[in-house]
Amino acid sequence: MSRKSRRNPKPQDPPSPSRGGISRAGLFIAAGVALLVAFIAGTLVYRSERDQAVQEAAARNAAQLASAHAPLLGKPDAKVHIVEFLDPACETCAAFYPHVKKMMADNPGRIRLSIRHVPFHQGSEHVVRILEAARGQDKYWEALEAVFASQDRWTVNHRVHPERVWPFLEGIGLDLERVRRDMNAADIAARIEKDTADAQALNVTKTPEYFVNGRPLPRFGLEELQGLVKEELRSAYR
């Protein structure tokens, strides 16, 4: 009722379509542009803050990257050090591995690779234990390559079937009986625990994650990894 009486004087309003000077279309376009600019600005601010936070976390946790206990490939005095956090059941890790090997082959003696294990997939800790036990027989890299090569046979749709990996470890010179005995050793459990704790401190939540001379990837991708390695090679061997 009261609203009706309040509305009564309305028809006497000047019937101009653009009261106040700004047209409807102008208002619409201005609002759209403002929202879009806010979105882009927010994106830029968020990205730069996140990148900075990642760099700072890596610098703060340099000790966690030391990886003295981790399997090492390449010459120990190579100046470019890649630390890779991987899960043997992770498809992308298997896909990236040959590219890392190729970078090392293209720059002989200049790149070394440390592997840290983060068994994010349920059941892949069993495979990590096998890999760690293979180190005792000096066959870590052979075992890792066999595990990656057969990955689609023992990991189906991200479901790990750890027992299925064993047949693929034959023929690389591993004493499998010894692996079965060694894989439950206390020092292997301790190394897995250290890898997991360090991954947490470094905020590694996805695999593979790479740190090149302590620097994390700005954004995940093969090109980003290759670019970062190239940068570090250039500054270490000019």
Binding site: R7, K10, P11, D13, P17, R19, R24, F28, A31
Partner: peptide, 15 residues
């Protein structure tokens, strides 16, 4: 129409 004012308000609400 007669209700220019009310349709203005409706336009702003949809906007």
């Amino acid at each position: 129409s007669r209700a220019r004012g009310t349709s203005d308000a409706a336009w702003l609400l949809v906007f």
